[in-house]
């Protein structure tokens, strides 16, 4: 018995690097899976009381007897109370056409149906709408990032800009984007700009800020002795910028970009709302709420979340690649 356990223990002590990596992945994968299962469980539990009203009304029309019997009494009872009184009708809450809260499998089905199940040129394809929003997001993110970096360079190198720009940048972010988005759309429309550009402007408006804040911190991150060293070489401002400040700011830049791209997506979606729900993820959300299509709303929401997560992941991957090539990752 002890011989057996010893012979089992020895190989497991000598795990290869690959095995250790695999085990790590398995462990973190298991943790993520556990959380997902819990969330989906809570979601299904919530679906029952949320949709029980409709389920019972339909059942009554079909001739079933519901507790309590009068509609007035039912109105006074909450969703949980109704559910407990009529638990045998709980099954009817999961697959309604217009549920108050769609169940997870309905959202997944809708996501599958509107991505894989439709031609991407179709107006009903989520990929089509996603691309409309993504293109505005990327353009806005590009503009916002460039503007943010230029402003940060100005702030770090110019005392007047240092004193004047930051308060305005902060003030710009205190204005609710929902209030200013229609203004931007209307103003740009009156000078003949429609579609992509106005949405991108709103995206840029949201995404430049984290880039400014991060890059100012990054460009100022070199230590005094590192700057003094440059000074002893009589290095020009340009040389200090390209050889010291900019490379030192890279970790800060990528962190800001991750925040910025998520903000950009929000900006693009918000920018689609006042245009009257023509195309884009924002349009899907708005149209869904006009027509009570909760499944469509939720699938658009998840589409947006998946899009944001993928973009953040891509930036994270570029960050890893860049920093390891720079020798700044161990």
């Amino acid at each position: 018995m002890s011989d057996l356990s010893a012979s089992v223990a020895v190989p497991s002590m000598r795990r290869s690097h690959l095995q250790v990596k695999l085990l790590e992945w398995l462990r973190s994968g298991l943790a993520i899976l556990t959380v997902v299962i819990c969330l989906v469980g809570v979601w299904y539990l919530a679906v029952m009381p949320m949709n029980i009203h409709t389920a019972l009304t339909d059942a009554e029309r079909a001739g079933a007897v519901i507790q309590p019997e009068t509609a007035a009494a039912r109105r006074d009872l909450g969703g949980v109370g109704l559910l407990l009184n009529n638990f045998d009708h709980a099954g009817a809450t999961f697959n309604q056409d217009r549920p108050r809260l769609p169940s997870p499998h309905q959202v997944v089905e809708e996501l599958w149906d509107t991505t894989v199940g439709k031609r991407i040129t179709s107006k009903r394809s989520l990929v089509y709408h996603g691309w409309i929003t993504l293109s505005a997001t990327l353009l806005g993110f590009g503009i916002g990032t460039v503007a943010g970096i230029l402003l940060a360079i100005g702030i770090v190198h110019n005392r007047a800009m240092d004193m004047s720009v930051m308060p305005w940048a902060i003030a710009s972010q205190t204005i609710p984007i929902l209030a200013i988005a229609p203004m931007i759309i209307v103003v740009l429309n009156s000078i003949g700009m429609q579609g992509l550009v106005p949405k991108a402007m709103i995206s840029a408006y949201l995404s430049f800020f984290p880039v400014v804040v991060g890059m100012v911190a990054g460009l100022r991150s070199p230590e005094v002795s590192q700057l003094d060293l440059m000074h002893t070489y009589s290095a020009s401002r340009n040389q200090v910028f390209w050889r010291l400040r900019l490379p030192a700011s890279m970790p800060f830049l990528f962190t800001s970009l991750k925040v910025g791209i998520a903000a950009s997506l929000i900006g693009a979606i918000v920018g689609e709302l006042p245009t009257g729900a023509v195309e884009g993820l924002g349009a899907r959300l708005l149209a869904g709420s006009y027509y009570g299509q909760t499944i469509q709303i939720w699938s658009a929401l998840f589409g947006a979340a998946i899009l944001a997560a993928s973009m953040v992941a891509i930036i994270g991957w570029i960050q890893k690649l860049t920093l390891s090539r720079m020798g700044m990752l161990r």
Partner: peptide, 12 residues
């Protein structure tokens, strides 16, 4: 040439 207390090599 000046040598500081911290080596101050640029990590990149």
């Amino acid at each position: 040439g000046y040598v500081f207390q911290a080596a101050g090599l640029y990590p990149w």
